[in-house]
């Protein structure tokens, strides 16, 4: 199987996060983040519910590996290597010729492969709008709701200080 541009070893990725993405790249970045936070079971169900999915072939993976997680000295300074995280990646090609890529945290190959399939489908004009509406938007909403619920719990633990009246005037 061909191995398109194997990103071997720790390459220098410490540059700025996103140097002005094109609208297409920004949209893709969004759905990839949503797909990475979903799980294999819900992606499988969503794919089964979607009509007219072309066949696909695996070009790379799904394969398990790691990313070296970097952080910043003092929180905002130069990078240091904090430790690694297990990740899984997959690249597929639809019968239409469209490539789909996915990288997800963890070691679930099915998750990575399904995310790659959706990545390819979402770049196809016929599939993009219905998948955005039926898959990406609801997943994004559920993930946002989860984050909001956590934030509300955290907010309930905010300390409200009382100012003690001093006897001195």
């Amino acid at each position: 199987m061909p191995e398109p541009s194997p990103a071997s070893s720790a390459s220098a990725n410490s540059g700025p996060a996103d140097p002005a993405l094109t609208p297409e790249q920004a949209a893709r970045r969004h759905w990839m983040a949503v797909l990475a936070r979903a799980d294999a079971a819900s992606l499988r169900a969503a794919l089964d519910a979607h009509a007219g999915v072309p066949a696909w072939t695996r070009l790379r993976g799904p394969e398990s590996g790691m990313t070296m997680l970097r952080a910043r000295q003092g929180g905002g300074g130069s990078p240091f290597n904090l430790g690694e995280a297990a990740i899984c990646r997959c690249t597929i090609r639809l019968a239409t010729g469209r490539l789909g890529h996915a990288y997800v945290l963890g070691r679930d190959g099915a998750h990575a492969e399904l995310a790659a399939v959706f990545d390819a489908l979402l770049q196809e004009a016929d599939h993009a709008a219905p998948l955005q509406a039926a898959v990406i938007a609801p997943l994004a909403a559920a993930q946002a709701a989860q984050r909001a619920a956590t934030a509300r719990r955290a907010a309930a633990t905010r300390v409200e200080f009382f100012t003690m009246a001093s006897m001195r005037t």
């Binding site: 990103a7 071997s8 070893s9 720790a10 390459s11 220098a12 990725n13 410490s14 540059g15 996060a17 394969e63 398990s64 590996g65 790691m66 990313t67 070296m68 997680l69 970097r70 952080a71 910043r72 929180g75 905002g76 990078p79 290597n81 904090l82 690694e84 995280a85 297990a86 990740i87 990646r89 990288y103 984050r147 956590t150 934030a151 719990r153 955290a154 633990t157």
Partner: peptide
């Protein structure tokens, strides 16, 4: 176990200033 896994690439530095804070 980690010695059995290939390292694909390094991440961008984590931005803890953008943390979803619980505490």
């Amino acid at each position: 176990f980690r010695t059995t896994l290939p390292r694909f690439l390094a991440s961008l530095p984590l931005e803890t200033s953008a943390m979803a804070i619980r505490r």
